[in-house]
């Protein structure tokens, strides 16, 4: 006679949930700082509910079955939220794998008279939970990637401040590598600030840029060209000796650009362009 594992498990839902909760609560890694026990119970119940509801003989055999989609959805939701809350992969994995223990003990109780059947059904349940585990990890990582992407955006935003140095002069210190997406942000911020303050001189200080290769140089040249199209002059300052060396070694042509060793000398140049003079006051 064919056993209906799905039915057996559905009948024992209450005990499964209890057992699973017990398994989770004894796990020393339980993060009460991140989630209260009540919340954990709600999450666990939600998953057991949807799992047992959708479980049938068919999808136990075929793990790709579309009927499992509802389970996947709930699981994905849970693991994304855990990734964002700062759970470790282990903690998130344990959440799902400890359910396996609960399901298997119930099965063992129910089918204790038929070892062959028990083995068979246990394997199926085990495979199902394994596949759910994989989905958990996949979504967990996706959640983490989202966090990283968001942080990258934030870093780019805050790492390109524009400073109004003087009436008509803005400066932007660049810290970190200058890749093409960063260059775009640098250009946008710098050019917008030029318009907003109607400054005719912009200083781009690259003392905080670790290395200048031909690609970075190209980005700098583009920024200077765009500034000039708007009708302002762009000075690059903060050229360290190493950078001067690589520029020459790589044969990069910066001749069309005004470059200065320090921000101070860039400022001096800017003052000269604006016909300003900075003088020491002689005490009488």
């Amino acid at each position: 006679m064919k056993l209906d594992t799905a039915k057996i498990l559905q009948k024992r839902k209450k005990q499964i949930l209890e057992l699973w909760m017990k398994n989770q609560l004894v796990d020393f890694s339980l993060r009460e700082d991140l989630m209260s026990n009540d919340e954990l119970t709600v999450q666990s119940e939600e998953l057991v509910d949807v799992l047992l509801q959708t479980l049938s003989g068919n999808n136990l055999e075929d793990l790709q079955a579309s009927s499992l989609e509802a389970v996947h959805e709930v699981l994905e939701g849970i693991s994304i939220s855990r990734a964002k809350q700062g759970y470790s992969p282990r903690e998130t994995g344990m959440f799902v794998f400890s359910l396996k223990d609960a399901l298997l003990s119930i099965l063992a109780q129910e089918i204790k008279n038929d070892p062959v059947q028990l083995l068979d059904e246990s394997l199926k349940v085990s495979k199902l939970i394994d596949s759910l585990g994989i989905i958990t990890f996949e979504t967990f990582i996706k959640g983490r990637e989202e966090v990283i992407l968001r942080q990258t955006d934030e870093i780019t935003e805050i790492s390109t401040p524009v400073i109004r140095v003087w009436d008509g002069i803005v400066a932007m210190p660049i810290i970190g590598t200058l890749d093409s997406s960063r260059t775009q942000v640098v250009m946008e911020n710098l050019l917008q600030e030029i318009v907003d303050t109607s400054s005719s001189i912009a200083i781009l200080d690259i003392s905080g840029v670790p290395a200048v290769d031909s690609l970075v140089a190209q980005h700098l040249i583009k920024t200077v060209s765009a500034t000039r199209l708007m009708g302002a002059e762009c000075i690059i300052s903060g050229i360290r000796p190493e950078i001067a060396q690589t520029v020459v070694h790589l044969g990069i042509d910066l001749s069309g650009i005004v470059t200065k060793a320090s921000l101070a000398s860039a400022l001096r140049h800017a003052y000269a362009l604006l016909q300003l003079e900075v003088k020491k006051v002689v005490a009488k």
Partner: peptide, 11 residues
Amino acid sequence: MQPAVAITLVE
């Protein structure tokens, strides 16, 4: 010239 236009022209 608008900033977006300048950036586009350079590209």
